[in-house]
Design a protein around this nucleic acid. Sequence first.
DNA 1: CGGTTCTGGTGACAAATGTCAGCAGACGCG
DNA 2: CGCGTCTGCTGACATTTGTCACCAGAACCG
Lengths: 200, 200
Amino acid sequence: MIRVVLADDEDLIRGALAALLELEDDITVVAQVSDGNAAVEAVRAHRPDIAVFDLEMPGRDGVLAAEAVRDVPDLVVVLVTRHARPGVLKRALAAGVRGFVPKTTPASRLASILRDVRGGSRYVDSDIAAAALTEGACPLTARELEVLRHALRGGPVAGIARESNLAAGTVRNYLSSAMTKLNVSTRHEAARLAWEEGWI
Amino acid sequence: MIRVVLADDEDLIRGALAALLELEDDITVVAQVSDGNAAVEAVRAHRPDIAVFDLEMPGRDGVLAAEAVRDVPDLVVVLVTRHARPGVLKRALAAGVRGFVPKTTPASRLASILRDVRGGSRYVDSDIAAAALTEGACPLTARELEVLRHALRGGPVAGIARESNLAAGTVRNYLSSAMTKLNVSTRHEAARLAWEEGWI
DNA sequence: CGGTTCTGGTGACAAATGTCAGCAGACGCG
DNA sequence: CGCGTCTGCTGACATTTGTCACCAGAACCG
């Protein structure tokens, strides 16, 4: 019997996935949680065979949660995601994730994917893998990504500076550098692009 | 037996929801489709008791699809949505939708919601309803919304002006007016806010 | 030790943006 | 017709942004 911990912040989706998995004779959902921190706790408490995490979760996203449970022996982590962005796949694989399943995957395949990764193989959606391979790596530094993250909201530079505890001039420098690298002319375009690529 | 047509562009979610509903003795999923146009066709072809549409779909969104099947007699439409924005609720109710279910709803309640709306009542998530009632209507004019739509991308004013065939100064005026009404200090914040409220 | 890189910062300057007042044509309405 | 309103535009102005050059401390490496 494959024991599964399920983490997704959307109750409807999580419950539906649980129903789907429970239909299988050899799979049982031992815990359901709705955020990244609870996911880590649930994994430590229940010691499942497989942890299925949604990528987009409040508190700690799926990749960070996967990193946090890397030390658990014999645990396989599978990420489920809506926006299957190439950059995220790399982060996920680096975090030891064994399966990367976009929500466009047919529901009928989920169970067999779980069995496969349990058996030792990896599962990565072929479309995303291809995109990730043709993509160049993220050209931005950690600081540049940091300020871009804050720029996503749309506020003025002064606000970003406050949030990141930097001088306004420094923030502008990082933003300027990021904009040059991404070949766009406003920080908002840069932030959007970085988001779409999965860098932030 | 309640016959259901299910439309959601994410195969994994749609399949999981189908599994969830099929668990109920009195509910059966007669068709599953993945976009708004196919949803309309499936409803006409299968004449279900209930149509469950995702709000975010390619081609024709859930509200437009609901409008397109308004003439089908004895049909109840229920919308499922991720971003439960107040403005959208109003559009949905105006389109004759009988149920509005955010994806934060516990999965266990979905079946009973379908039974309730089939019995003639309406279901609207109380949080969204409250938000929609406390919210005033959209304070923006059609032109302001138009330029905000283009501002979403993050480009410079000149680009927005080109896309909307207006002079740059005029665009700035509309943006300025929208920003004042929304009480924010950049057009990007305004565009984001308008998006979150469901106005664009 | 010197050299290099990363981080955080300053000051200066041009361009873009936001704010405001005002103008002109089109349109509907009493 | 006159009046108000909407739309689109212009010009002026202060502020914000983006760009650039440069500085200084810390960490690392040869």
